[in-house]
Computed example of a mutant assay.
Amino acid sequence: MTSTSGDPRNFALRDESGEKTSTFTGQVPRQAALKVARRLDTADSEAQASREEFRLREKGTKKLHIYEGWAWREQAPEDKPGWMAETITEANVSKEGIEYLDEL
């Protein structure tokens, strides 16, 4: 199955035992990984953030994307909209690789 570049793809977050815990959507795996990273324990700064490894299974494929992610809190920009909180969660990820599973 192929998709066009604008179609969203679904990625299942897998725990250590390989069980699906949540589903995240993104046009590319990194977009979904950033959504996962924002849910990690946040630190007061990026330098203090602890890195956590997680795995995203791309639905409909045998690909398992492996990422290391971290999150931290920052002050919202001065020109923020009125509904935005004073502090926001920022995140970053680093791709560690791809594994190919036997089963679909």
Rank of each mutant, 00 (worst) to 15 (best):
M1N: 13
M1A: 15
T2K: 15
S3L: 15
T4F: 14
S5R: 14
G6R: 14
G6Y: 13
D7H: 13
R9Y: 03
N10G: 10
N10W: 06
F11C: 01
F11L: 00
F11G: 02
A12Y: 03
L13A: 09
L13V: 11
D15P: 05
S17G: 05
S17W: 05
E19V: 07
K20L: 02
S22A: 15
T23Q: 09
T23N: 10
F24A: 05
F24G: 02
F24R: 03
F24V: 11
T25N: 00
T25Y: 00
T25W: 03
G26C: 04
G26E: 05
G26Q: 02
Q27G: 14
V28C: 09
P29G: 06
R30D: 13
R30M: 08
R30W: 02
R30K: 14
Q31K: 15
A32F: 12
A32E: 12
A32Q: 07
A33F: 05
A33M: 04
L34S: 08
L34N: 06
K35Q: 15
R38Y: 05
R38K: 15
R38N: 09
R39I: 02
L40T: 07
D41L: 09
A43K: 08
D44N: 12
S45I: 10
E46D: 10
E46C: 12
E46A: 10
A47G: 06
Q48A: 15
A49K: 00
S50Q: 13
S50C: 00
R51H: 06
R51C: 05
E52V: 13
E53C: 08
E53D: 13
E53A: 08
F54K: 00
R55Q: 07
R57L: 13
R57M: 06
R57G: 04
G60P: 01
G60S: 08
G60A: 08
T61S: 14
T61V: 06
T61H: 00
K62Q: 12
L64S: 03
L64C: 02
L64D: 01
L64Q: 04
H65K: 00
H65I: 02
H65T: 05
I66M: 01
Y67M: 00
Y67D: 07
W70Q: 10
W70C: 06
W70L: 10
W70R: 15
W72K: 03
R73H: 06
R73D: 07
R73I: 02
Q75G: 10
A76E: 01
A76L: 06
A76Q: 03
P77E: 07
P77W: 03
E78N: 06
K80L: 04
K80D: 04
G82R: 14
G82I: 09
W83D: 07
W83H: 11
W83K: 04
M84G: 02
M84W: 06
A85P: 10
A85Y: 01
A85G: 09
E86R: 12
E86H: 12
E86A: 15
E86T: 12
E86D: 15
E86Y: 09
I88F: 05
T89D: 01
T89L: 04
E90Q: 11
A91S: 13
N92A: 12
N92Y: 03
V93D: 01
V93N: 08
S94D: 07
S94A: 11
K95R: 15
K95C: 13
G97L: 08
I98L: 11
I98R: 04
E99W: 02
E99H: 09
E99K: 11
Y100V: 14
Y100H: 13
Y100K: 09
L101D: 09
L101S: 09
L101M: 14
D102Y: 05
D102V: 11
D102K: 14
D102L: 11
